[in-house]
């Protein structure tokens, strides 16, 4: 069984992002970039499925600039077998990514596509769901546990009310939540082996996908600065302020 795992190059989670002075986006020049942490979890899950004998091959896919090869290389060092970079300088949106992944999933004959539940740069939380819709496959989003047996993926999902378990007939799309696993560190021998693994370079047009943006960003700004709180002398004053100033009760 072939697994496709999507990995996105994002600003490292340790970096405090800054809005560009012209408010068109966030500053990425000279900023440390890494694999989206939820995608790391997705890669780890794919590798574990291969180690269990469920998967036979893991293909790591990224869509973006040439430097995204480094992100794919990280996935290869974690245990993916080969990579595909769909290279474009366009800032791709979830729908475009979903279309590219659909084309690749069909081309590769993948049975499962594993993604992070969302990327930490735009927090869209949309690609996995869009991909499932485009493919017409069942989806197990926010997965905290995945078991594959007899052509069915049993996925435990983290939802607002607790946990929900769904059974998906393969092929299926799974998106990884934070508690699905703890990603391994790429070992030094595997980093060296990853250099010898292949990364196929494609363009969106090779897959017949138009990645032209459909959304227009009007402006990007910092969140408003939080005002300092105040101390109230007693509960009665607190309730009075909540009722008359904050007007929340």
């Amino acid at each position: 069984m072939k697994l496709l795992v999507a990995v996105k190059r994002v600003v490292d989670y340790n970096v405090k992002v800054r809005v560009k002075s012209d408010k068109t986006g966030v500053e990425t020049a000279g900023v440390k970039m890494s694999m989206n942490p939820f995608d790391e979890i997705a890669v780890e899950e794919a590798v574990r499925l291969k180690e269990k004998g469920v998967a036979s091959e893991i293909v790591a896919v990224s869509i973006g600039v040439s430097q995204a090869q480094e992100t794919i290389r990280t996935a290869l060092a974690m245990g993916a077998d080969r990579g595909v970079l769909v290279e474009t300088d366009v800032a791709v949106e979830p729908l475009a990514v979903a279309k590219v992944l659909k084309a690749l999933a069909e081309k590769e004959g993948a049975q499962i596509v594993v993604l992070g539940k969302q990327a930490i740069d735009d927090d869209m939380n949309a690609t996995g769901q869009m991909l499932a819709a485009l493919l017409g496959w069942p989806q197990g989003t926010f997965a905290s546990k995945v078991e594959i047996a007899d052509g069915t993926a049993t996925v435990t999902r983290e939802i607002d009310g607790g946990l929900e378990t769904v059974a998906l007939a393969l092929p299926a799309v799974i998106t990884a939540d934070l508690r699905l696993n703890e990603p391994r560190y790429a070992s030094l021998p595997n980093i060296m082996k990853a250099r010898k693994k292949s990364i196929d370079m494609l363009k969106p047009e090779d897959l017949g996908v138009d990645v032209t943006p459909r959304l227009t960003t009007l402006s990007v700004s910092e969140p408003p600065v939080r005002k300092a709180g105040i101390k109230v002398p007693d509960v009665a004053t607190l309730i009075e302020k909540l009722r008359n100033e904050a007007k929340v009760i």
Partner: peptide, 15 residues
């Protein structure tokens, strides 16, 4: 090299 940087990054992250 990219390998050297990735190995160092692994060490940094692990530690």
């Amino acid at each position: 090299t990219e390998d050297q940087l990735m190995m160092a990054e692994t060490a940094r992250k692990l530690l």
